[in-house]
Design a binder for these strands. Structure first.
Length: 860
RNA sequence: GCGAAAGUGGCGGAAUUGGCAGACGCGCCAGACUUAGGAUCUGGUACCGAAAGGUGUGGGGGUUCGAGUCCCCCCUUUCGCACCA
């Protein structure tokens, strides 16, 4: 250990040492309890950014903490290495996606090693390598067998800028998740995975993870699946055998239905129009809506104006036999519920707005039950079936009125009873719908896992047999940028023979969505070189589920839904035995920086020019300080504002720690007893043998251990760093020089410094290793050092300073023994001269004594 | 528009969950050491006030001996959803 701290001198040394000793490789046969710490699979863009650094700093702090607590830690890393940027690089710069990707991975691995993240480098996986995507294909075949993968022609979400198909999740909000371009529709044959089959489980199993996941992610998961309980009701079409099925959550409002409204895409429409006098007019109108929907406007935030048209046909309300008009409108969506609704203007805001615009009747059938009254000021009590004046739809539950035999029932009862009635009369019944759609995984792209099926003129679609996997991606293709799969341009790939009949056949040229790769990768880490299976179920059972997952909340819907879905499929395949793959999830906040010339902080980005290069930070301040700052500057889930002076503060702290350790280190100039030296262990000395100052230092040491240990469990890393800074300050305030220190003083310092160094390891491991070695622990790396144990007795104060309030205002303090009786504390507080001066001349009404905490004297 | 979360010094943030508001750090101020300092060290730093003391956790009300913390209303910000029947 040198006198001065130069990070560049020690960081490389320890990184080399860790690599040489393969220090962080997890072993299956390790008998200690396991802990699986996982950060989200990174895309190999070429450069690490500060968001990565934050992600890995958090994950590594936890991995180190658990390691020091005696867990057998699995902390792996890999690459989400399929995807569009590689192809774009190919188009723009003529490099091959594979070369571009491998170069990026090599560079980023170097950056990760320079950060000193304690990964198990023996388990690295990469999605673009055949030994990985082979298993994507294997899973696809299994899902095909299970009926979970299927092909259909469908209007897909299409990004016109990137010329690619997007999943629903990727086009959330009507814009491309990557480039923000407005998404349009396009009809093509697509492969889907039946996520809808697991809709109920994706909601119900949330219960198992709710306590370990952030509430906002849980909410978004629920919302995305969009479970909705209600009923189907069939409305007969007058003068026809056809029925229109509608879905409603408010069957109790059905007597208020004044129209049936269907989506423009509804298949029944053209049949209805055959008998309608308004045939052409309505047909054109419906076409207009469909076109408008396909070319969504830029401004997605503006609510579209409701447009509708009467088809001229009538439907029969099965509850009361009433004839109501059938309309087509743009506000009814084909892909939700039944693609048709009963319009109840009095009790639904959308229907209300629609009815007002087209002057449809508005009939109240639900009345408020507030205070036992049946009417609200703005909703007059109904009389007959006339339209009434309402300013707004009344959408709350209430009591049914004007609803025949159902009048007088409460909404909740009516919803149950009317659905049952509909079922008995076979025109409907209770039903549950979900908002989630099947997952479209076809991509017309080169750089993805080929979908392993073959099209034979004779046999049709034939799955590639398992033994022929992987279907290898060719080395090269032509990148035309047309939106057609580049694989179509590779005859050696396309032309094959039918696995069934041996005749000439062609391959599927679509590749899989890259979210497939990231849906199960963390199981592969458990058994990364398995050649017979994606992973051995027994090995995976040892490590999974993931104990702590860490990543950005941009993946709160897509990746986490897919991953949960995939796990359930794997469970049904017998590969895993649980429903949910991740016990605890942490969504870290963004890293932002000031935008040049403004006072605004925005996410670091190339276009804004406010990015910070991790390599430059490592060079200027060291990996340890960079990591420490990132963890100290803000709570992990908050936004992190970059600050150059803040990172300087981190270096300053590390330097002070270094100086302190150097000053007290054993050895030539050393004073401290070597670790464990005879008679020099804290435990061998009685507490009376320590000076007051030494006891105070030991108290701080043990309080800090307790605090840091507790905060690690909550992942409150910023307060942990603060606690270590306080401990350092306390060691500094211990006003004894090494040359004059008594044995007991040295023991107290030794204890404090050892604890500080170990607890610093999760934040700044290189400097910790260097200091640990200098402290005489030549017996090995910190990874096998024991986390210090807090001694509650030593952490206990000798005396307490109890604040005394008069009428809730702090007036004085009394110093007392911790075990003082309530009565004595009360007497002492009342006798205090400052307290006396404040209660002088007034009557003491009450004295509240909170043991060990506070006294409040109430006077009048 | 709907929904959720959050508002604490100049800044990032603490506060054992109803009990001393502002830990720790950044910044700033003063001093020391220095040829020098954008290095290092020491001290100070919520606001008003000379002090005694008073005020203070977005604003207003309430519960309580006691409120940053609990309840009600309002304001602001951030995020999510966007016709989901």
């Amino acid at each position: 250990m040198d006198e001065k701290y130069f990070p560049e001198k020690i960081e490389e040394k320890w990184q080399q040492r860790w690599a040489d000793e393969r220090a962080f490789e997890a072993r299956q046969d390790d008998p200690r309890p396991k802990f699986y710490a996982l950060e989200m699979l990174p895309y190999p863009s070429g450069f690490l950014h500060m968001g990565h650094v934050r992600n890995y700093a958090i994950g590594d702090a936890l991995a180190w903490y658990k390691r020091l607590r005696g867990f057998n830690v699995l902390h792996p890393i890999g690459w989400d290495s399929f995807g569009q940027p590689a192809e774009q690089a190919a188009i723009k710069r003529g490099v091959q996606p594979r070369d571009w990707t491998e170069e990026n991975i090599a560079h980023m691995e170097g950056q990760m090693r320079r950060l000193g993240i304690s990964y198990d480098w023996s388990r690295v996986i990469a999605a673009h390598r055949p030994d990985y995507y082979k298993w994507d294909q294997w899973f696809f075949l299994k899902m095909l067998e299970m009926g979970l993968a299927y092909k259909r022609k469908s209007a897909v979400n299409w990004c016109p800028k990137e010329e690619t198909v997007l999943s629903n999740e990727q086009s959330s909000g009507g814009v491309c998740w990557r480039c923000g371009t407005a998404v349009t529709k396009k009809e093509i044959e697509q492969w889907f995975l039946r996520t809808t089959k697991y809709a109920e489980q994706l909601v119900a199993d949330i219960e198992e993870i709710e306590s370990g996941w952030p509430a906002k992610v849980i909410k978004r998961q629920r919302d995305w699946v969009g479970r909705s309980e209600g009923a189907y009701i069939d409305f007969k079409v007058k003068d026809s055998d056809e029925k229109i099925r509608v879905f409603t959550t408010r069957i109790d409002t059905i007597y208020g239905a004044t129209a049936v409204v269907i989506a423009a895409e509804h298949p029944i429409l053209s049949g209805l129009l055959e008998e309608s006098g308004l045939k052409e007019q309505v047909r054109q109108f419906a076409q207009k809506i469909k076109t408008a929907r396909a070319i969504k406007t830029e401004d997605q935030s503006a609510e579209e104006e409701k447009l509708g048209m009467n088809t001229g046909r009538l439907a029969v309300n099965p509850f009361n036999g009433e004839l109501i008009p059938i309309w087509v409108a743009n506000y009814v969506l084909m892909d939700y519920g039944a693609g048709a609704v009963m319009s109840v203007p009095a009790h639904d805001e959308r229907d209300f707005e629609f009815a007002q615009k087209y002057t449809l009747p508005i009939r109240q059938v639900i009345a408020s039950v507030v205070h036992g009254q049946q009417d609200e000021p703005e909703t007059q009590a109904p009389g007959g079936d006339q339209s009434i004046e309402m300013k707004n739809a009344f959408t709350e539950y209430g009591v049914l009125v004007n609803s025949g035999q159902w009048s007088g029932k409460l909404s909740a009862d009516a919803i149950r009873d009317m659905a049952q009635y509909a079922q008995e009369k076979s025109f409907g019944g209770g039903a549950v719908t979900y908002r989630i759609r099947d997952w479209g995984i076809s991509r017309q792209r080169f750089w993805g896992a080929p979908i392993p099926v073959v099209y034979c003129p004779k046999c049709g679609m034939v799955p590639v047999p398992e033994k022929d996997l992987p279907v290898m991606l060719p080395d090269k293709a032509e990148f035309t940028g047309t939106g057609e799969s580049p694989l179509k341009t590779v005859p050696e790939f396309v032309n094959t023979t039918c696995p069934k009949c041996g005749e000439a056949a062609t391959r599927e040229t679509d590749t899989m969505d890259t979210f497939v790769d990231s849906s199960w990768y963390f199981f592969r880490y458990c058994d990364p070189r398995n050649e017979a299976m994606p992973f051995d179920p027994e090995i995976a059972a040892h490590w999974t589920p993931v104990d702590q997952y860490i990543g950005g909340d941009s993946h709160a819907v897509m990746h986490l839904i897919y991953m949960r879905f995939w796990t359930k499929v794997m469970r049904d395949l017998g590969l895993v035995k649980f429903n949910e793959p991740v016990k605890r999830l942490l969504t870290q906040g963004m890293v932002t920086n000031r935008v040049e010339g403004t006072n605004e902080y925005k996410a670091m980005s190339k276009s804004l020019g406010n990015g910070v290069d991790p390599d430059e930070m490592i060079e200027a301040f060291g990996a340890d300080a960079t990591r420490l700052f990132v963890l100290f500057a803000a709570p992990v889930e908050n936004e992190l504002r970059w600050s150059e002076t803040g990172i300087e503060g981190a270096v300053r702290f590390l330097r002070r720690v270094w100086t302190m350790v150097y000053k007290w280190r054993p050895g030539s100039a050393g004073i401290l007893p070597a670790h464990g030296a005879e008679g020099m262990q804290a435990g061998s000395l009685r507490s009376q043998e320590f000076s007051d100052a030494a006891r105070a230092l030991r108290r701080k040491t043990h309080q800090t251990i307790a605090r840091v240990t507790a905060d690690f469990e909550k992942l409150d890393l910023n307060t942990n760093v603060a606690a270590l800074m306080e401990l350092l300050n306390a060691i500094g305030e211990f006003n004894v020089e090494p040359s004059t220190a008594s044995d007991s003083d040295a023991v107290a310092v030794r204890e404090a410094i050892d604890a500080m160094v170990i607890m610093l390891t999760p934040f700044s491991p290189h400097i910790a290793e260097e200091m640990w070695e200098a402290l005489g622990h030549s017996d090995g790396l910190l990874k096998s050092a024991p986390w210090p144990v807090a001694d509650a007795e030593l952490a206990q104060k000798d005396e307490l300073e109890i604040p005394v309030q008069v009428n809730g205002k702090l007036r004085s303090r009394v110093v007392v023994a911790p075990d003082i009786s309530e009565a004595d504390l009360r007497e002492l507080a009342l006798a205090d001269s400052r307290v006396q001066s404040f209660i002088d001349g007034q009557k003491v009404v009450k004295v509240i004594v909170v043991p060990q905490r506070l006294v409040n004297v109430v006077v009048k």
